[in-house]
Amino acid sequence: MSNAGKFAIEAQGLTKAFGEHIAVNELNFRIPKGCIYGFLGPNGCGKSTTIRLMTGLLTPTSGEITILGQTLAGHEEAIKQKLGYMTQKFSLYDSLTVLENLRFVAAIYGFTGTRRTQRIDELLHLYDLKNQAKQYAGSMSGGQKQRLALACATLHSPELLFLDEPTSAVDPENRREFWERLFDLCDAGTTILVSTHYMDEAERCHALAILEDGHLRADGSPAELMNAMPANVVEIGGEQLRQLKQALLQQSEVLSAAQIGAHLRVLVKKTQTDPLRFLALLCAGRPMQLARPSLEDVFVTCTGTRHDE
């Protein structure tokens, strides 16, 4: 219990089964307070399910969750006051205006009178929704909806914020802007858990967990993950890269080969101590060089069918 003050979320053996299908399988992770933590994983890997478990929407099949030092089971109501949740699908009312939606959420959280007016003004300003205040939520663009959803999720200044694929309908420009807001919140002391399948977004997180098929494949900071990656990255140039790719994938030491522009990006297991010589034997005469690993390489290395042979 000495860690009680340090971690916002601790999950132990967290499992959720829907009938036969195990959507979340024996997850163990700890999310330190005050950081932005990412859940990175492909569609259907269990990101939303894990978030629903932590917000008390679903009850785990087994395992334990501790939120802000308090066991979730049995304390849902008290913990709800400290949580903010932005759902993957827009969950506010299309037939209400921005202002009416905010007022409704404020009333639900017990804001009244001038306190309510002030807080709503603040949020309209912060999330650049002043001009949309009278617009129906249903008629707004993806980016505007997402800002409204964030405003509603943070209205009561929660200590812990869950964002489920918050930027899936947002252009890169607005995504940057959105992340600025997240770092502001983080600076103010909010712990943020964000799920995504965008690499650039994952890279901005302080730490992240890579999920696949309900399993936690790796976790740590982006730099740690890249360093600990059990493969080297080699870029190979030349002609007829597609044929080369097929040939290289026959090798069990090659984890993946993907064409990126005029190069083939090849991941070679670290069990091969000299990847350049290993590859030179396979494709003599081509230009090749070692490259810095990216988060995508980490992702590819620890997911897919080839990773654990």
Partner: peptide, 13 residues
């Protein structure tokens, strides 16, 4: 159906 409930449940209502 429209997903409003998922948000509402995590509020104190």
């Amino acid at each position: 159906e429209q997903g409003n409930m998922e948000f509402l449940i995590t509020t104190p209502i």
